[in-house]
Design a protein around this nucleic acid. Structure first.
Lengths: 121, 121
DNA sequence: ACAACATATGGACATCTGTTCATATGTGAT
DNA sequence: ATCACATATGAACAGATGTCCATATGTTGT
């Protein structure tokens, strides 16, 4: 882990580390979030979390054109969210690591949260 | 937590739950991610994670116009990422709960990850 | 009341982005 | 080699989005 990520991690643990000066790391983070910020792409990610699944199966299961799915898969693979593995004619996609799973899990907890006591001002 | 969120959570724990049928929950999730997917907005969120901070201070610390900051804050407040509290003329923004902190922390771990052994195909 | 400050809002603009269509690449079987 | 199938790629378009500018709202003073 580089120093930039470390600084942000310290911030996240509410240690008073000064400014957000790691410009490129913030951009990297934002890129990842933006990638998950499209409903279609998020659906594709969710489908791939179960088991490795082929492009065609993703398309049919989500009622999308294979072309569109492929376009999105290219971005997700480039961002190392998913990995591709060829078996014969088909190419199976699956999650590259568990971080994305954790991120989504946390986010589900956030949106699922009802109005809590802190809401009042 | 509603049934839709539950289904997704089950998926995240690799329990073989079949389709992603909770359309609106996926859209909610994507909305949150999209919100964090802009570098400027993410910077604003990061600054607000430390302590409650006024709009003007956010603007000066990030070298942005107060107008732009206000526009972004409106979205973040509406999405319940941040909360606003007025003190005199100024309005202080801070994180509404710790979920966002967790989400960012996980994402930092993801982008900070070097090429791991699983990468090979 | 007014002035000064802090924040919010609305419109306009350029840019980015998701989708579609057509086409290309690659693989396995006959 | 040729066909059928699976996936990938490129161009083009409509719609969304971030930023700027001007202006409005709200608050604390005098």
């Amino acid at each position: 882990m580089d120093i930039c990520s470390y600084v942000i991690l310290m911030k996240l643990r509410s240690v008073p580390v000064i400014p957000v000066n790691s410009e490129d790391t913030v951009v990297q983070l934002a890129d990842m979030f933006r990638l998950m910020g499209d409903p279609t792409r998020l659906r594709i990610i969710l489908v791939c979390l179960d088991d490795p699944i082929s492009v065609g199966d993703i398309a049919s299961r989500l009622a999308l054109s294979p072309s569109l799915v492929s376009h999105h898969l290219r971005l997700l693979k480039a961002a190392r969210v998913l990995r591709a593995k060829r078996h014969g004619k088909q190419i199976f996609y699956s999650a590259l690591d568990d971080h994305v799973r954790c991120v989504i899990s946390d986010m589900v907890a956030h949106v699922g949260e009802p109005l809590d006591a802190e809401e009042a001002d």
